[in-house]
Design a protein around this nucleic acid. Sequence first.
RNA 1: GGGGGUGUGGUGUAGCGGCCUAACACGCUGCCCUGUCAAGGCAGAGAUCGCGGGUUCGAAUCCCGUCAUCCCCGCCA
Length: 588
Amino acid sequence: MYKTHGCGDLRAEHVGQRVELAGWVNRRRDHGGLTFVDLRDRSGVVQTVSNPELSQEAHAIAEQVRSEWVLHIVGEVRVRPEGMANPNLPTGEVEVEIQELEVLNQAKTPPFKINEESEVDEMVRLKYRYLDLRRERMQRNLELRYNVIKFIRDELGQRGFWEIETPILFKATPEGARDYLVPSRLYPGEAYALPQSPQQLKQLLMVAGVERYFQIARCFRDEDQRGDRQPEFTQLDIEMSFVEREDVMELLEGVYSSLIEKLFPGRPVSVVPWPRLTYQESMDRFGSDRPDLRFGMELVNITDLAEGSGFKIFEGAVEAGGEVRGINCVGCGHFSRREIDELTEMIKPFGAKGLAYLALQESGEPRSSFAKFLPSDRLDAVIKRLDANPGDLLLFVAGERDIVLESLSRLRAHLGERLELYDPDALSFCWVIDFPLVQWDAEGQRWDPSHHLFTAPMPEDLSLLDSDPGKARGLQYDLVLNGEETAGGSIRIHDRGLQEKIFELIGLDLDTARERFGHMLTAFEYGTPPHGGVASGLDRLCMILAKEPNIREVIAFPKNQAARDVMAGAPSEIEPKQLEELHLRIVE
RNA sequence: GGGGGUGUGGUGUAGCGGCCUAACACGCUGCCCUGUCAAGGCAGAGAUCGCGGGUUCGAAUCCCGUCAUCCCCGCCA
């Protein structure tokens, strides 16, 4: 070993000890005679001092040293002279007096500063990711992620789960996201697919009698990027036999609650059991199936008050079968016309024609785009229903239900952040349940599973599958954290007949279904236990726990927006020889 | 596939028709300096203003195209 201690671990208790340190030069302060070298390793930073009176040889080297050089130092830990302690440094009470100094490696001047949290263009960071990861923020994130995963492994182990690996080379499933394909060398024209999730395999593990399975599983989806989406990502995959919906939800909230209690003590977190909202309720109150429960500002339906109100825009929306809903931005009555116009522009992309506003003044008439059209008793009823007081700003959207909900939901999320309506440390969980099993896909003219095609319908809704499939609910649950979808799961179908019925409903003919999922159907005939599970996006979870704005900040080597690895330059051109082996030809 | 933002020394920014022979901070190089810790002092190097075309007497600045990058929509069972 090159070191006896971590740089950041040295304290007053080590005074007098001879220590060996190894690490990077964080900063050098050369006073000519005396030279200070702040040495950094994973554990932190400690000040080392080179004094020519102690070692002429070491001092000559210390004068040559530059940022990010890799050093090996032998020296003695000393208390700093009176008044020289640095309270900003955990190791600030001591310093290491250099006796021997060895340069293990020199370093070019890095393209950006490693020793401070300066803003750097992300392309440059990704190109030199190994340097970016050397910075404190990234080291913190890497450690946080490790701690989260370690905790989950330990916790699930204690709860009787086995961690089982499933194949990365598996079979394409044209339903769902686009697959990443791996062409087969041995079988011309055939390909493996990388898993979008280990869904089928974990269900087959239940058939296999595993009963309690989990995996920290890498998943692959060839779709376009977002700030919270990467082409490959990691999910906590769980499956359990002989359970009902509530059992799976209780398990995950138990694991995550204790995780936060242990690793993030002091952060405000939802109390178990976490709120359970039906899909209907969530849409009705928040306009979204992933409601951010860190703050209120719920959507209020005033459709009945809008009907025949005298305001043509409201009336028209109601007559066309639409709705009128509003939110109360408490204390925002001072918003300027321009600010309200900006909010209006914000929701137009979602189909909203406009934004009606009513700003209640502390005194005098309200400022409003529509109040003058409404009889005063109607106006009072509206104000009362939104629980509004002088100084508040009420915002309304009228139109088709979907548009109203989406617009106000976006507006609510935007205002919640802008007005700082919540504690940035808060971790607000909730479950959304009772999703529709299938949704009508107008483009494809067919029913689409809202979760996936193995989700069991609610038993009491079974008959609806024939009469009114859109009304049938699934035994499904989504976990939402601070308005972000963090996990999703369901009780699965374990009956071949029902599974085939679902295939049929979503327009998979029996031959195709058997070709793609024959192994599942066959397995269901050999004594399949009732089972269900959940999958949780760990990158996203870590992103929120680390309070990072972007999923790339918690992934060691992420792809950029265009799905490229800019450090290694992947994807890259294929050698003709490889193409030939794989029986492939490039079509321009 | 579509919409929007951004591209100026190594990094972060300023400049947004002529005062630009491109400014500032940090970093970098050299010299000085024995108690600094964002060390300090002095001196210095470093930019064809993403690329191509156009408008103009004159373009970092305006226009068009293109590339890169980020955000969003579509997509993500």
